[in-house]
Amino acid sequence: MSKTVFKRPKSLKENIFHYCPGCGHSIVHRLVAEVIDEMDIRGITIGVPPAGCAVLAYNYFDVDMIEAPHGRGPAMATAIKRTLPDRVVFSYQGDGDLAAIGIAESIHAANRGENITVIFINNACYGMTGGQMAPTTMLKQRTTTSPAGRHETLDGYPINVSEIFSQLKGSTYIERCIVNSPAGVNKTKKAIKKAFQCQVDGLGFSMVEILSLCPTNWKMTTIDSCKWMDEVMSKEFPPGVFKDTIATAKKTAEAT
């Protein structure tokens, strides 16, 4: 008898990902789908994909989804959750989407303590539009719009979203992960599960920032990309738990 050790999560449709080889989006989609399966919340989950490489996420996730205009995912997710408080609502966003055009919607959703989950893909560039500079692009990193490398006096600094969001009184759980190794992938899945559980328990805003590969626009092999993430990207964006007030939030919830 053979034993199944690996199969498609039920919450993923049988469509072939359009993502480039080595892309981190594929990994994270799978992780989110596995978590939805394991928590048995497919039927009550509503996802909000962004404008960005993940714009077609509704072709992959087998849950109800509504595409948001660029950057506005957290506003939509806020409204869906407030309208249907017993559903599980997540937005899925890139770094241009969340940290540039949609920074206001994101910060305010976090600050209001909206009981939603944000899956934040930090790939240090604008993937979909062809590799332009993102707010998270590294100093000296060359992109199509920072051809001489990002320079702080011209372009400012890479923005540390998890650090900022952890300072907001409204946020409950903020973790940064990295998907460039099996260990990192496993850790990321745990963080995603914790974030969704935080929401299911009604404890407030959760976000998982995921350092993610974009070999195409970094113009590197997948292996070099993984190395660069260790040697450069994770120095600027150290993985870790930046905020976890789940225990106190639970106590407050129990007391009231």
């Binding site: 909000v48 409204a79 869906i80 309208t83 249907l84 206001a104 305010h108």
Partner: peptide, 17 residues
């Protein structure tokens, strides 16, 4: 809302819901 942009996208979300 934090802006008119957020407001219109909020009502879009609630309308879908």
């Amino acid at each position: 809302s934090e802006s008119e942009i957020a407001a219109i996208n909020m009502i879009a979300g609630a309308s879908a819901a």
